[in-house]
Design a protein around this nucleic acid. Structure first.
Length: 268
DNA sequence: GCACATGTTCTCGG
DNA sequence: CCCGAGAACATGTG
């Protein structure tokens, strides 16, 4: 469910239940795949610490704790952070009991989500690998990253080292709005196209944040509401439908192992 | 059974 | 060491 706009909405909604509260108790399920930091260590380290801030870098949520340690949360494909879950959920992996009566649940059906605790003074290789947040992607930087690369421009956009936060939906949407085919070799991008594409990326992400993200399948905000941006998708998931800007049928190809949607008339 | 799913990481060959 | 392609991870839905 989560690309930058969805994660940003989770961050904003979760903050009141998380920030300025003390972690009183941790419940962690037995799923070793899900935990970078093992459950026993989380149970040992987290209780008693206060959450000072909840930030987002790309698709990662980063909580800073009172001893300057950090807790990284990544939602993977199906992760959900919510303040209202029914107990007895087989996909529940982690529960934070916070001070003053708040509880936060982390559930994840496919378990591609991740939880990692970073000790004070340590740094996370995961965060260090991330490029600039996609809300601030600059055309110049995108152009530089595209030089001497053979990979499709779509795949370049998905590279979190180039820009952190873009996922499959918003990559397709931004390319459609920029009039660039997802299959275009990165090295064939002109500078003015790179500048336009970066602007479309920033714009669509900001719009999607405002709309509460996109809810398709199981994405939900922490309060249980759905986002609205899926109604504004113009290309993603619309294979075979008529393009909103012309009469052509929307095409689907696989690039870098991901479904990619485009209009052969509007995108060159 | 098959295809596919808002993601990341690892392996392999060049 | 860099690059790119493909597989792997775990589970559900149609």
């Amino acid at each position: 469910m989560p690309e930058l706009p969805e994660v940003e909405n989770v961050r904003k909604q979760l903050a009141p239940s998380f920030v300025s509260r003390t972690i009183q108790e941790i419940w962690a399920g037995p799923n070793s795949y899900f935990f970078i930091t093992p459950p026993r260590q989380l149970k040992r380290e987290l209780p008693g610490k206060k959450v000072r801030a909840l930030a987002r870098h790309g698709k990662y949520l980063v909580a800073t704790l009172s001893d300057d340690s950090q807790l990284l949360l990544h939602l993977g494909m199906t992760g959900q952070l919510t303040t209202q879950v029914q107990e007895q959920d087989r996909h529940l992996h982690l529960i934070f009991k916070m001070s003053r009566g708040k509880t936060i649940y982390f559930r994840d059906v496919r378990k591609f989500g991740k939880v990692e605790w970073i000790a004070p003074g340590e740094s996370s290789t995961r965060l260090e690998k991330l490029g600039p947040d996609a809300l601030e992607l600059e055309g110049e930087a995108l152009y530089r990253a595209s030089r001497n690369r053979k990979i499709p421009v779509k795949t370049l956009l998905l590279d979190q080292k180039v820009s952190a936060g873009i996922g499959n939906i918003y990559a397709d949407e931004a390319l459609f709005r920029a009039g660039i085919r997802p299959s275009r070799p990165s090295s064939r991008l002109t500078k003015s196209e790179a500048i336009k594409l970066a602007r479309e990326v920033r714009q669509i992400l900001a719009l999607a944040v405002s709309a509460g993200g996109s809810s398709i399948n199981d994405y939900m905000q922490p309060n249980g509401n759905e986002g609205d941006f899926q109604h504004l998708h113009k290309i993603y998931g619309k294979t075979g439908e008529t393009c909103s800007e012309c009469e052509a049928k929307i095409q689907r190809v696989v690039l870098g192992g991901r479904s990619s949607h485009f209009c052969r008339r509007c995108q060159k």
